[in-house]
């Protein structure tokens, strides 16, 4: 059973998740079919900047986050930015989109100059997120849990971060049990995606290096 306090926490996180999204003027540009390789690169850069800003605005609403040491706040955001962005992108890709949009987006990524070696695990991850059919509450909580990982580099007070992450994990566990009663392993599968994100993070560092050379 989810307590009243936990329900309030879920509402807070989900409202923040819905409120902070990539601006429409940027997402509209993504769906334009005519673009050059350079325009594509510039747009993906603009998207990345916007995604980071959205991530920070979402994170500010996580109860207790702004009470953490300021440099620990920076360390958590820096450390989780790539993973949080992949998770959010995967959730966007897994939603039902108007006809043709998925293909345009996928094509844009494939023609961006990013090597196939990286694109394959990325789209595999998007597919594995899609297969979970998460509800928005689960998506928002999983994002918050990703950001509140105490083991990010340079975090000084790991216990303070753990104290924020644990209630989120507890709420998510209960939500999964209630939403997916016939899938007792569902929560474990969600946590498994966090491990996949760590691998993607590692790929991302290598991908950036090769993209720069290209």
């Amino acid at each position: 059973e989810i307590s009243k306090e936990q329900q309030a926490l879920i509402k807070l996180i989900v409202d923040a998740y819905k409120r902070h999204q990539i601006p429409q003027d940027i997402t509209k540009k993504l769906l334009q079919e005519q673009y050059s390789a350079e325009e594509n690169f510039l747009l993906l850069t603009e998207m990345a900047t916007s995604q980071v800003q959205v991530l920070v605005e979402f994170t500010k609403n996580i109860p207790g986050f702004l009470s953490l040491d300021h440099e620990d706040q920076i360390a958590l955001l820096k450390g989780s930015a790539v993973e949080a962005m992949f998770l959010r992108s995967a959730q966007v890709f897994s939603r039902k989109m108007p006809s043709g949009h998925t293909e345009v987006l996928e094509e844009r990524v494939r023609k961006s100059g990013i090597s196939e070696e990286f694109i394959t695990p990325m789209f595999n991850f998007y597919k594995s997120i899609g297969e979970l059919h998460m509800i928005q509450e689960e998506q928002a909580l999983l994002s918050a849990i990703t950001i509140l990982s105490p083991d990010r580099p340079y975090v000084k007070d790991q216990q303070a971060v753990e104290r924020l992450q644990e209630p989120m994990l507890d709420v998510l566990r209960k939500l999964c049990a209630l939403q997916h009663p016939l899938e007792p392993q569902y929560f474990a599968r969600l946590l498994g995606r966090l491990t996949e994100l760590r691998t993607l993070n590692h790929y991302h560092t290598e991908m950036l290096a090769s993209w720069r050379v290209n």
């Binding site: 980071v52 920070v56 605005e57 920076i74 820096k78």
Partner: peptide, 21 residues
């Protein structure tokens, strides 16, 4: 580390300011 400086700048600015501004 150099590539992360851009990321850190964006994060610091966003943490201090308001996105709408």
């Amino acid at each position: 580390p150099a590539s992360n400086l851009g990321l850190e700048d964006i994060i610091r600015k966003a943490l201090m300011g308001n996105l709408e501004e």
